[in-house]
Design a protein around this nucleic acid. Structure first.
Length: 256
DNA sequence: ATGGTTGCTTAGCAA
């Protein structure tokens, strides 16, 4: 089973690249973030023609997440479904081939100390509560997405210039680690302990040509799956060429 | 020196 995650930064702007990538890579499951479309504007038809079902939690202009899959998803649940009054579409879950899949788009947080940063940290705590309510670490669960956190300085090309940013701040790293410690393995880290491989480069300041990147997109798997993860990688070719997303897809391969 | 780009929507926000 091949599972990917990709922040496409608008599914309409990225439609042709997304379809070409699905044809090339043929993942069984792709978690997508930053659709930037309402449900009724989602391009169901071309994705279906490419051979994929789509479970969609859309939002006009901002956010929006989906799970694309070869086999039909069941038990689709949108949002964190907690007490908070939160209109932002940042999470969707489904069951595919007896495996639970969650596609998450963690808030960016703007700058440390801002209201948006507080919302980011709170959202990550709500995600941890959501995992506790809905799942068991001994089950088959993959949590994928744009976490907007680089777990370690190994995951940052220029750690000194990103120190204290919302992507690297200790409180954000602690919040991410708290989610991971619920019962996940970061399967990319498992296969690339040396670091130096990134999933996001700012559009500005020639960040990609300078490889000023960070690894902020992750595939977290529970033990029954992490123990069967045979490889993981980041397709940085997708950051090149005409109208790329600012994120590259992360892919993990599992036996069974 | 505090820069720069992209996308959605149409000048301002979010990333």
């Amino acid at each position: 089973m091949k599972i990917g995650t990709w922040n496409v930064n608008s599914i309409r702007a990225r439609q042709e690249r997304l379809l070409a990538w699905l044809r090339k890579v043929q993942p069984d499951v792709l978690c997508v973030q930053e659709l930037k479309v309402a449900d009724e504007v989602f391009p169901y038809e071309p994705i279906r023609e490419a051979g994929y079902h789509a479970a969609v939690h859309g939002q006009k202009t901002y956010n929006g997440v989906a799970i694309l899959s070869r086999n039909e998803p069941t038990n689709v649940v949108c949002g964190l479904a907690d007490e908070a009054d939160d209109p932002q579409a940042r999470l969707i879950a489904a069951e595919i081939d007896a495996t639970h899949i969650v596609s998450a788009y963690v808030p960016n947080g703007h700058v440390v100390g801002s209201d948006k940063y507080r919302y980011k940290l709170d959202w990550m705590e709500r995600l941890r509560d959501y995992l506790n309510r809905r799942f068991d670490p001994s089950g088959r669960l993959v949590l994928c997405g744009d976490f907007n956190v680089a777990p370690d300085d190994l995951d940052v090309a220029n750690p000194e210039s990103w120190a204290g940013s919302v992507l690297c701040h200790q409180d954000a790293r602690d919040a991410l680690d708290n989610i991971r410690r619920w019962g996940f393995t970061d399967v990319f880290r498992q296969h690339h302990p040396e670091g130096g491989i990134y999933s996001w480069w700012d559009y500005r300041m020639l960040a990609f040509p300078k490889n000023d990147g960070l690894r902020i997109d992750h595939v977290f798997a529970t033990e029954p799956l992490a123990g069967r993860c045979t490889s993981a990688g980041i397709d940085r070719e997708e950051r090149k060429g005409h109208k790329p997303s600012d994120h590259a897809p992360v892919i993990a391969q599992f036996d069974n």
